[in-house]
Amino acid sequence: MTESASTMVLQLQHLSGHYGETQALHDISLEVREGEIVCLLGRNGAGKTTTLRAIVGLLARCQGKIEIHGQSTIGLPPEAIAHLGVAYCPEERGIFASLSTEENLLLPPVLKPGGMTVEEIYELFPNLLARRSSQGTKLSGGEQQMLAIARILRTGAKLLLLDECTEGLAPVIVEKIGQVIRLLRERGFTVLMVEQNFRFASRLADRFYVIEEGTVVDSFRQDEITPNLERIERLLGL
């Protein structure tokens, strides 16, 4: 395979998985190629977050195929999957209360070359520099979200999984996060995001998968949205 824009970064095939006794994923197949922004859409409880958790190895029981850069990750522990160049920003943000803002930022170890430097990150998020000695959880919701994204940019991971990173934030912050994600694409990052805010995602992502009851029920490119708007909105219950 050549180092082109079409290099496969992530591939799921017929993935199913369980949360305890309940089957949360039935049959998920999707692909993410290098430099793409791919968005998972769907109603609450459809299995979007579970899909991301399965990719980073946090879902104990999975069957099917997950490949990252061609390497199968089913059964690998999360710390081994991280070394393949995947980083995860969870929906609840996961800012550590016992760590300062800067400690939170510097916590994830650098695993590969090519990540952003601390200076570049502070340039991108000046608020974090101003509040670097504050307790992580004392930041505003928007700042915590910035911090949660910022800290996975240093590690050298080029595939970022962002779960609902605009949830509950003011429009001006959502706008800022949109700018950051566009900038990340320019910097060569690949993004798989989960988003409830379809208006936000529709202007940002290249391709979309709609998930319902733990399976992929539809997929389309950004330029297919307008002609199919009615069908998509019905699928999403908008």
């Binding site: 710390e79 991280a82 994830p108």
Partner: peptide, 15 residues
């Protein structure tokens, strides 16, 4: 300290 709060998330960082 971080692993005390959220061990799974720290594992996804490669620790």
């Amino acid at each position: 300290r971080a692993a005390n709060e959220n061990p799974n998330l720290v594992r996804t960082f490669g620790v």
